[in-house]
Design a protein around this nucleic acid. Structure first.
Length: 322
DNA sequence: ATAGGTCAAGGAAGA
DNA sequence: TCTTCCTTGACCTAT
């Protein structure tokens, strides 16, 4: 029987003044005439973001939530070309270490999902290079947290650029230029406009990359495929990973705005997924992507508790019993 | 104090 | 080939 574990994304709607993604724009950075002072301000913001992450993990621990996506905006302007000589790790390594220690000590799975501006299949060399820089930043955050970066960073295949098949092959070509450590960090998710689950599986199997199945994206972009047919391949793509299979789940905001995320996740969508995948793996981690963040997770678990076939294991994990 | 505008990015889709 | 929209939380500006 499969254990299903729920997690959520980046921030809590319950904790006050705990943003992990406070920022500073380049514009306001430049307004400060003293470069050193401006950098110190950036470092203060970054430290506060990391400390707020720790608060979030403690909040999660209190609710037995041990699966969480960290914000990618912990260090503002970290990858900006105008700040390449800023050694941000010198100021942040202690806070990062503490964050990593806490997550390890409490058996938490934490990971990242940089936004869609990371495009490894871009034909533009500069965009490819900037994408690598952003990935390296994520790699360093994990390293300084003292965590193995393996399979902790979700990305998409990228753009279509008029010729989808050729662009998909370009991802494979570019992969050879991605440093080994970063290769091992990456996992691939099907997206809602271009690359379907099967497109991604083709790449994942070729390059030995775990596949993250996003059911909402699949419903928006499936090309007639049924995910159930491909599910064994998804599970198999994780066979060489020390981490459990991971999937994303969210409900459409409305029929009209189908691709946008709703406040909460429809419990029936999750139950349907559970019924169809039960027994396929030891554990499946389900990332709740909803506007109401942790409240969406809590609402789901409250609904699950009432279901006759659900047996809660902890406050955020459960099993299906026949 | 608060509302509405702006910011940053790359790509898709429409004009 | 161009413009507009998408997405996101938070910052910024005007009231």
């Amino acid at each position: 029987m499969t254990v299903y574990r729920l997690g959520y994304v980046a921030m809590s709607v319950n904790l006050q003044n705990a943003s992990p993604s406070q920022t500073m724009t380049l514009k306001s950075f430049k307004k400060i005439n003293d470069w050193e002072a401006a950098v110190r301000r950036l470092e203060r913001i970054a430290k506060s973001n990391i400390q707020n992450c720790l608060r979030l993990l403690k909040h999660n621990k209190a609710h037995e939530v041990d699966f969480f996506r960290l914000s990618s905006r912990l260090v503002p302007l970290a990858t900006h070309e105008e700040l390449t000589k800023w050694d941000y790790m010198a100021a942040l390594k202690e806070s990062l270490k503490e964050l990593g220690r806490f997550s390890e000590a409490n058996g938490m799975r934490v990971d990242f999902h940089p936004d869609h501006f990371v495009v490894l299949n871009s034909p533009d060399k500069e965009i490819f290079q900037v994408s690598l820089d952003v990935l390296k930043y994520h790699y360093l955050l994990l390293r300084y947290m003292g965590l193995s970066p393996d399979h902790r960073c979700v990305i998409h295949l990228g753009g279509r650029y008029a010729d989808k098949e050729q662009s998909l092959e370009r991802f494979i070509d570019h992969w050879a230029e991605v440093p080994k450590g970063i290769q091992k960090m990456l996992i691939i998710e099907n997206d809602d406009t271009s690359y379907t689950l099967e497109n991604c599986l083709y790449v994942c199997e070729k390059l030995n990359i775990p596949q993250v199945f996003d059911i909402h994206h699949h419903l928006a972009n499936h090309d007639g495929e049924s995910w159930e047919d491909h599910w064994p391949r998804v599970v198999n793509s994780w066979s060489h990973s020390p981490l459990p299979v991971k999937m994303h789940i969210s409900s459409p905001k409305s029929e009209k705005e189908f691709k946008a995320h709703a406040d909460y996740v429809d419990v029936d969508l999750l139950l349907d997924f559970v019924k169809k995948t039960n027994g396929s793996a030891e554990q499946i981690d389900c990332m709740i992507e909803a506007k109401k963040k942790d409240n969406a997770l809590f609402k789901l678990t409250n609904e699950l508790k009432k279901h006759p076939n659900i047996e809660m294991q902890t406050q955020s994990s459960f099993r299906w019993k026949d």
